[in-house]
Design a protein around this nucleic acid. Structure first.
Length: 319
DNA sequence: AAGACGAAAGTGGTTGA
DNA sequence: TCAACAACTTTCGTCTT
C-alpha cells in the first residue's frame, strides 16, 4: 500500500508542525497538531472489504493497481513549460511569444478537459454508488469513459449518457450485468439512450461484448429476493440445461433468469409469487409465465410442491 | 382476496429489401 | 428508409387456491 507523500506539505502550512497524519478512512491528509486538512485527494488503494456473499466476495477481490482511473488526472498532471520565465529568455523574442501563447493555450485546454473529466467521474461515482458497484467495475467504467473522451466520442451526445453507457459496458465485461432499467433508474437517462450510446461505444472502442447469460443475473436477483444458495444453484442448473436446448436463444436474459428462479424457488419450497419476482427482475409476470411454460415443457419438468418430497419429479436435471 | 393464467392489442427495437 | 417481425409489455377477464 502506497501512502501518499506530498512533496510540498511535509510541513503544515498553518502551524508548521511536521506531524502529518494520513487518515485513510476519509482519504485525507491531516496535520495532527492543528487539524488542518492538507490534502483530501488521497487515493484509496486498499480493498473494499465489505462483501456479503460469495458473489460479491469474488467480484471485490482484486490485486492492487496503484494508479486509479477514477481520478481525473490519474494523480499526475502535465503542463507545458513548467520552468520559470528565466528559461524563456534563452529564446528569440518571437519564439518566446509563441511559447507563452502555447503555454496559455495548453493550460486552458487542459483545465477545460480536466473540469469535464472531473465532473464526469463524480457523476460516474454517484451512479456506481447507487448501484452498489464494486471498485474494480468502477475503475473499468472510468477507463472506458476516458477512452471515449480520448477518441472524441462524447461529442454530440450528453456526457451523462456516455457515463451511463460506460458503466453498463463495464458491468457486462465483468460478468456482473446490470439491466438497462437499473442503470436508467440510477442515472436518470432513458434506457433507449443508454443502449444506443452503449452500442456506439462498443463499436468505436472495439470492446468485446458477449451476449449476457441469464446465469449472470441469478445471484443478484436471488439474493434480492432473499432466496437461499440452494435455490440459486438449482436455478443455474436449470438455466444450463435450458441453454443446451437453446431455449434461451433470442430471449431476454432477464426473463429467462426470472423464470428459472421462479421454478427453482418453488421446487425448493421457498416459493415467491410471480409478482415479487417480476418486480425485482423488472420483467412482467406475463413474460415470466411464458418462459416458465417453455422451460417446464421443453425440459420435462414437473412442478408440484407438496412439502419436501416432490423435488425430483420428471427428468432429473438436478442429479 | 390474492395469485396464477392467458388472450389481445400495443410498444420499441432489429432486420432485410 | 420503410415494412415486416419477434420479444416483451399492458391491460383485463377468468380460473384457482
Amino acid at each position: 500500500m502506497v501512502k501518499k507523500k506530498s512533496m510540498r506539505t511535509d510541513v503544515c502550512p498553518e502551524c508548521g508542525s511536521t506531524e502529518i497524519v494520513v487518515d485513510e478512512r476519509h482519504g485525507e491528509t491531516i496535520c495532527a497538531k492543528c487539524g488542518l486538512v492538507i490534502d483530501e485527494k488521497l487515493v484509496d488503494t486498499g480493498q473494499e472489504w465489505r462483501a456479503f456473499d460469495h458473489d460479491q466476495r469474488m467480484k471485490r477481490e482484486r490485486v492492487g493497481a496503484s494508479l486509479t482511473y477514477m481520478r481525473h488526472d490519474k494523480g499526475l498532471s502535465t503542463l507545458i513549460g513548467r520552468s520559470g520565465y528565466a528559461e524563456l529568455y534563452k529564446f528569440e523574442p518571437e519564439k518566446r511569444k509563441q511559447i507563452i501563447k502555447l503555454r496559455r493555450w495548453h493550460k486552458q485546454i487542459l483545465s477545460a478537459t480536466e473540469r469535464n473529466l472531473r465532473f464526469a467521474l463524480s457523476e460516474l461515482d454517484r451512479i456506481a454508488s447507487y448501484l452498489d458497484l464494486p471498485r474494480n467495475i468502477r475503475e473499468e467504467a472510468a477507463m472506458i469513459y476516458r477512452k471515449a473522451v480520448e477518441k472524441g466520442l462524447v461529442r454530440g451526445r450528453s456526457m451523462e449518457s456516455v457515463v451511463a453507457a460506460a458503466i453498463y459496458a463495464a458491468c457486462r465485461q465483468h460478468d456482473a450485468p446490470r439491466t438497462l432499467d437499473e442503470i436508467a433508474e440510477a442515472s436518470g437517462i432513458k434506457k433507449r439512450e443508454i443502449g444506443r450510446t452503449y452500442r456506439f461505444l462498443t463499436k468505436e472502442l472495439g470492446l468485446k461484448l458477449l451476449p449476457t447469460s441469464p446465469i449472470d443475473y441469478v445471484p443478484r436477483f436471488a439474493s434480492a429476493l432473499g432466496l437461499s444458495g440452494e435455490v440459486q444453484a438449482k436455478a443455474i442448473q436449470i438455466l444450463k440445461e435450458a441453454m443446451k436446448k437453446e431455449l434461451t436463444a433470442g430471449r431476454g436474459p432477464t426473463g429467462v433468469a426470472a423464470a428459472a428462479i421462479y421454478i427453482a424457488a418453488t421446487l425448493c419450497g421457498e416459493r415467491r409469487t410471480q409478482r415479487e419476482i417480476a418486480e425485482i427482475t423488472r420483467v412482467t409476470e406475463v413474460t415470466i409465465r411464458n418462459r416458465y411454460k417453455e422451460l417446464i415443457e421443453k425440459l420435462g419438468l414437473e412442478v408440484e410442491e407438496e412439502g419436501e418430497k416432490t423435488e425430483r419429479k420428471g427428468v432429473d436435471i438436478l442429479h
